[in-house]
Amino acid sequence: MNFKTIITTIAVLGTGITLAACQMDAYQAPNPNGSELWSGYKTATAETRAMQDDDFANPGMPMVDSAAALYNKKDGEANMSCADCHGAVDDPKGGSKGLPMKGVSARYPVYDADTKKPINVELRINKCRTKYQKAKEYKYESDAMLGMTGLIALQSRGIPMMSTADNPSDELNAAWKAGEAFYYERRGQLNMSCKHCHEDHQGELIRAEVLSQGQSNGFPTYRLKWSKLGSLHRRFRGCNGNIRAEPYGYGSDEYLNLETYLAWRGRGLPMEGPSVRK
């Protein structure tokens, strides 16, 4: 199916489905992904998969190596390292304080009682840096941050995403609802929502590209196009730009809500980060 056909199809079907989806009772919402849950790994070529399968050859890994050194390095006015609180990054017990990195990326975003908003791994790292290490924040899309989120994602490899944010009693439910609304909301000059590509036409071709299911389990991901690790929010900004919409900021409330919602859509998908994609 070519791009024009997709647009036409969307124009015909779009509005009704969007309204229906928004009016669904959240807690009883059926799986919106379709019959199968899948990540971009499924439609990647053998060559791209091979790059992800061999951790040694994964071109995002030198950055992760550097982050492993940063993790153990004392930093800030408090002269503390990540390891001082969390133990070795791969310690399943998480050091003496019992704060393991294993499973963190599969569980995040979580609710932050201080801001009453979702907090993702990036913002959590910066919270640790300012609150405990008394160090400067990492810039959102900096090498240090990408390496560190990659290092933490690595500790959750194979662990299924586990959001329960659709439950009205979940602290993240408000953010989940906002994220869902964002997902189904048309935006940009092309007047498209996330669902038009990633729900209605997942697995179909858009020119030479297979539309993904829009899952977040592989981030940070090494995109061949970027030739570098990149964050989920960078991908959001790219998507928004593609539909000629104004992208939101890294770590913005809009994207935190969307990240919260996507974590729920992906529940059950094993974590792959740092993955490799085209």
Partner: peptide, 8 residues
């Protein structure tokens, strides 16, 4: 060498 719709 392909040019993708969004990966490009």
């Amino acid at each position: 060498v392909t040019i993708g719709g969004c990966g490009g």
